[in-house]
C-alpha cells in the first residue's frame, strides 16, 4: 500500500464528478436546516454515521473482493430514493472513467464490463482502491471523508460560509471518520450480509424534492 495513492484518490480534485454533488446539503440549506458552521457540523455528523457508514461498508467490501453483484444489490436495497440510486450510479460511472485512466487494470475493466450502466459509487470506489494498491480501510476512509467533504464544500459555496470554519468542521469530525471506517471495515470482513445499513430519513425525503427543483446548483 502506498499512502500517497490514498491522497490522490481522496483529493477533492480527483476528477470523478463529486464537485457537483452536495450530499443533500443544497436541500438542507434551502430548508434552513444548515445555516452556519454548527448546523453544518450536525448535518455532516449525521450523514457520516448514516449514509457515510453505509457507503464505507460497501467500499470496504469491494476492496476486500466481495462479490460485486451482491454488493451492488446491497447498495440498491440501502438506497430507497431513486434520485439517490441514479446519482450513485452516475457517480459510479464518473469514478470508473477517472479510475480506469488513473490506475488501469483488469479489476476495473471487469467491473466496467459487468456493469455497463454503472455500479454504485462506493462499489466502484472499493475496486478503485484495490487497483491503486490500497486496502479496505483506505476505501472506507475515502467513503467516510467524501460523505462529509462534499456537503462542507457545497455549504461554503451556497452560504458563503467561512471556508476556515467549514474545514474546522471536517477536522473535528476526523476521529469519528476513523471510527466509521474501522466499523465499516470490520463489518465488511464478515461478508455482505453484515454490512451496515444505516439510513437517514431526511436525506431520502429531501433527495426527491431536490431532484424535482427546476433550478439547482448541485446534482444531488
Amino acid at each position: 500500500m502506498t499512502r500517497s495513492a490514498l491522497l490522490v484518490l481522496a483529493d477533492g480534485r480527483f476528477p470523478a464528478g463529486g464537485h457537483a454533488h452536495s450530499g443533500g446539503a443544497e436541500a438542507a440549506v434551502k430548508a434552513g436546516r444548515v445555516r452556519d458552521a454548527a448546523s453544518l457540523e450536525a448535518f455532516c455528523r449525521g450523514r457520516l454515521h448514516t449514509a457515510g457508514l453505509t457507503a464505507a461498508g460497501l467500499a470496504a467490501g469491494a476492496a476486500l473482493g466481495l462479490d460485486l453483484h451482491e454488493l451492488d444489490a446491497a447498495a440498491d436495497a440501502r438506497t430507497p430514493s431513486p434520485a439517490l440510486r441514479a446519482a450513485a450510479r452516475r457517480l459510479g460511472r464518473q469514478l470508473m472513467r477517472a479510475a480506469r485512466a488513473t490506475w488501469p487494470g483488469p479489476g476495473l475493466d471487469a467491473l466496467a464490463a459487468a456493469f455497463p450502466r454503472g455500479a454504485h459509487q462506493p462499489v466502484v470506489l472499493g475496486v478503485t482502491a484495490r487497483a491503486a494498491g490500497l486496502g479496505p480501510e483506505d476505501a472506507a476512509h475515502c467513503a467516510a471523508y467524501e460523505a462529509v467533504g462534499g456537503p462542507a464544500t457545497a455549504t461554503v459555496r451556497l452560504l458563503g460560509l467561512d471556508p476556515y470554519r467549514a474545514t474546522a468542521v471536517l477536522a473535528r469530525l476526523a476521529p469519528e471518520m476513523d471510527e466509521v471506517a474501522a466499523r465499516a471495515t470490520a463489518a465488511a470482513r464478515e461478508g455482505v450480509d453484515a454490512l451496515p445499513a444505516a439510513s437517514a430519513p431526511l436525506l431520502d425525503i429531501t433527495a426527491e424534492q431536490h431532484a424535482a427543483w427546476p433550478v439547482r446548483l448541485f446534482a444531488s
Binding site: A42, G46, S199
Partner: peptide, 26 residues
C-alpha cells in the same frame, strides 16, 4: 432470496452522533 430493502435507524443518547441534525431527524 435477494435484498429488497435494508435500513437501520438509530436514535437517542446511545446512538452515533448527528441523529438529530439536519441530515437525519432535525
Amino acid at each position: 432470496g435477494r435484498p429488497l430493502l435494508d435500513q437501520e435507524l438509530a436514535y437517542g443518547p446511545g446512538a452515533p452522533g448527528g441523529w438529530d441534525g439536519g441530515a437525519v431527524l432535525a
